[in-house]
């Protein structure tokens, strides 16, 4: 009996780990969608680039002889955030800004093009093979009998969950308290009106892209260290999952993205744990279709009022 409870908790913990990284990436989708109403399809690639950058920094520091793990990870994360947000900013300037007044379909296709471009750019630059990084943080918390049934939660899993919570809390504070956060919220409601009131919407949009990319870089660094590998194709599938999470939770809503990410991670983990791993993705997408059928606005999304 206790055996199966332990197993259940273990699977939930695994699901929460992967789910919190989905949530981090999903924020980028949901904020951009909330303000300019487009799917930033290239966001997953920003996550992938973030992982590459942190790997490069980690490998560089190792070669220079650093051995303090916390400094290394901190530095890797900082550089990764800087470069990834620069990429996010540039993507917006190059591929989306000229299209802001055109139809949504046009912007979406441009985003898909950008995603394909970035993926192949990294493939050509870094090769298509997996690049591996030895695990820096090992070990974990053990609950229960080490030889019998137990739950093992690795330090890395704890770090991922805790970092996610910190990022989310910081973001919530930023959005609710700061001046820029207020401008973001106002722009999400009516971008034309906020513009008239003297807020530079270009800055607001750029900030959104930078925040989204930074969180993606955090997720990239954490997941990169957790799994230890990266290749140019990880961005696409992670982006797809994170977008699914954003839609599940209600696109445009930041708490929704968190909820959606966790829900998706746990459902995947439970599918793999109790059914079979082959159908993990099928369950994820079916969940999305089902939820959209009954709640077209997602779990926490506001029902959309059509403006004419």
């Amino acid at each position: 009996m206790s055996d199966s409870i332990y197993y259940f908790i273990q699977q939930i913990a695994n699901g929460l780990t992967i789910g919190s990284t989905y949530a981090l990436i999903a924020i980028g989708y949901t904020m951009v969608y909330g303000i300019i109403g487009m799917i930033n399809f290239a966001h997953g690639e920003v996550y992938m680039i973030g992982t590459y950058i942190s790997f490069i920094v980690l490998a560089g520091l190792t070669m220079l002889g650093f051995d303090n793990v916390f400094i290394m990870v901190g530095l890797a994360m900082m550089v990764s955030i800087m470069i990834a947000s620069a990429y996010g900013f540039t993507i917006e300037k190059v591929a989306y800004k000229p299209l802001r007044s055109s139809k949504r379909l046009i912007a979406l296709i441009s985003a898909i093009g950008m995603s394909i471009f970035l993926q192949n750019y990294i493939r050509l630059a870094q090769g298509s093979r997996d690049i591996a990084m030895p695990s820096l943080i090992q070990g974990g918390f053990l609950l229960g009998d080490p030889d019998g049934s137990h739950i093992l939660i690795s330090y890395m899993q704890v770090i991922i969950i805790v970092t996610t919570i910190i990022c989310m809390a910081g973001l919530t504070l930023f959005i609710s308290r700061s001046r820029m956060g207020r401008a973001c919220r106002a722009s999400a409601q009516d971008i034309g009106m906020t513009n008239l009131l003297g807020i530079n919407s270009n800055n607001v949009i750029a900030t959104t892209f930078i925040i989204g990319a930074s969180l993606a870089a955090v997720a990239g660094t954490l997941l990169g260290m957790y799994y230890g590998v990266v290749n140019p194709y990880v961005g696409f599938i992670a982006g797809l999952k994170a977008f699914t999470a954003a839609v599940l939770g209600g696109i445009g809503s930041i708490p929704g993205a968190m909820l959606g990410g966790l829900l998706l991670g746990v459902s995947e983990s439970l599918t793999a744990g109790y059914f079979t791993a082959e159908y993990k993705d099928v369950v994820a997408f079916s969940l999305l279709i089902l939820i959209l059928l009954f709640m077209p606005q997602g779990i926490l999304g506001k029902p959309e009022v059509e403006k004419i």
């Binding site: 273990q10 699977q11 695994n14 780990t17 799994y227 990880v234 995947e268 983990s269 793999a272 744990g273």
Partner: peptide, 8 residues
């Protein structure tokens, strides 16, 4: 990339 469920 994630096989933690499988390993469990």
């Amino acid at each position: 990339k994630d096989f933690s469920a499988l390993v469990a």
